[in-house]
Simulated scan of single mutants.
Amino acid sequence: MSFGLALLVPGGHGQLGRDLVLHAPSDAYVSAPGSADLDVRQAGAVIEAVSELATRARDEGRKPVVINAAAYTAVDMAEKDQDAAFAVNADAPRVLAAVCSSRGVPLVHVSTDYVFPGDASKPYAADDAVGPQSIYGVTKLAGERAVLGSGARAWVVRTAWMYGAHGNNFVKTIARLAAERDELTVVDDQRGSPTWSGDLARGLVALAERIATGHAPTRHILHATGGGETTWFGFARAIFEELDLDPERVKPCGTKDFPRLAPRPAYSVLSDAEWRSAGLPPLAPWREALTKADVPSWAR
């Protein structure tokens, strides 16, 4: 049931944005512009987009919600191009939240595990201490704080290790390398929860519906990821299995064997306790979701 939703999805052409369109209620109004149609760095364009949503919702008797899926996600590039990362991940959400506040439109802002230091030994709760170790994480945390401090009715949803049928991601990289190499070496000392973008999209739509009907969570920071945990090595082997390839072709290594410009969290598992306590549907266990994602149909 859509409850007469009117959704604006900045970043609507990305892997999450496309799935939000796919999983929105059939009778909802959805505007999901890509960056060419809505450059979130342009304040005037953001003001216009949110105002149009609010006006349409008022005229059609709908409940407006913005789900912000726009992000600068090039983790290594962010170390060198900090201004661009801050513009999209921090400044743009600040403007978006301010406009949502002025127009009375609720906002759901998608964030990341990278806001944490990655040194935990149990899943991070939503209110655990943050401490990003990369510029990407710093910019995403700045965006969170801007949104939550804006005065808007706003919720931050952190996720991790997301992959989907659209755009570039780990699953597509592994599928490509599997066709090019006899053997792959993948990091086995970073732990997280692979998250199918379709499952996350369904969860975000459910959150939007609860907000629209007056049953919004009292907690304003929530975590939503695939259930369980694994390493990149374990994830890669599972991808091989889904492609009917021999997982023994994937060999483990350490982070030190693959130095990157931006540090990666060693531990990125997020607790969804607050998500569940809000009555929102938990995302499927990561291994089950990977099978459901039908990798062979899109990853090669």
Rank of each mutant, 00 (worst) to 15 (best):
P123T: 09
P123K: 08
Y124T: 07
Y124N: 07
A125R: 15
A125G: 07
A125F: 14
A126G: 06
D127H: 13
D128M: 12
V130A: 12
V130T: 15
G131R: 08
P132F: 06
P132L: 10
Q133W: 01
Q133Y: 00
S134E: 06
I135C: 03
Y136L: 02
Y136V: 03
G137R: 07
G137A: 09
G137N: 05
V138I: 15
V138N: 07
V138Y: 01
K140V: 02
K140Q: 08
K140H: 08
K140S: 11
L141P: 04
A142M: 15
A142Q: 14
A142W: 06
A142K: 14
G143L: 04
G143C: 05
E144G: 02
R145S: 11
R145V: 03
R145P: 06
R145F: 02
A146P: 07
A146T: 08
V147R: 02
L148W: 08
L148E: 11
G149I: 08
G149R: 10
S150H: 11
G151S: 09
G151V: 14
A152W: 10
A152G: 02
A152C: 04
A154M: 08
A154R: 12
V156K: 00
V156C: 11
V156W: 05
V157C: 12
R158K: 06
R158Q: 11
R158T: 04
R158A: 07
T159M: 05
W161F: 15
W161V: 05
M162Q: 15
Y163C: 02
G164M: 02
G164L: 02
A165M: 14
A165N: 10
H166S: 11
H166I: 12
H166K: 11
